[in-house]
């Protein structure tokens, strides 16, 4: 079940980009760029567990599909849905 893309500005930042990069520890990581309602951007880097949890919670099966999802999905506990 795909989760809705919650792009209402009242909800705050949304995911603008999500790409796979190389981590300092030799593992692939998910580099997520957030865009805030005021136009500012920040970046958060997710390790394997956090990255997979985000993809699961957003109901997507590839990183690029994370674009448009709200920031708080990043912090949510793992949902019971499956992709």
């Amino acid at each position: 079940m795909k989760q809705s893309r919650d792009t209402n500005a009242a909800d705050g930042a949304v995911i603008e980009r999500a790409e796979i990069g190389g981590g300092h520890d030799g593992q692939a990581e998910l580099v997520v760029t957030l865009r805030f309602p005021g136009g500012g951007r920040s970046r958060v880097v997710l390790d394997t567990m956090a990255g997979m949890r985000l993809m699961h919670n957003c109901g997507v099966d590839h990183a690029a599909a994370l674009v448009g999802h709200p920031w708080h999905r990043i912090l949510e506990e793992k949902r019971s849905c499956s992709i």
Partner: peptide
Amino acid sequence: IDISFSFEHPSLFFARF
């Protein structure tokens, strides 16, 4: 930076496909 992965353990390397 080089990274390593296998099919034995989960890796975000595969998250592009």
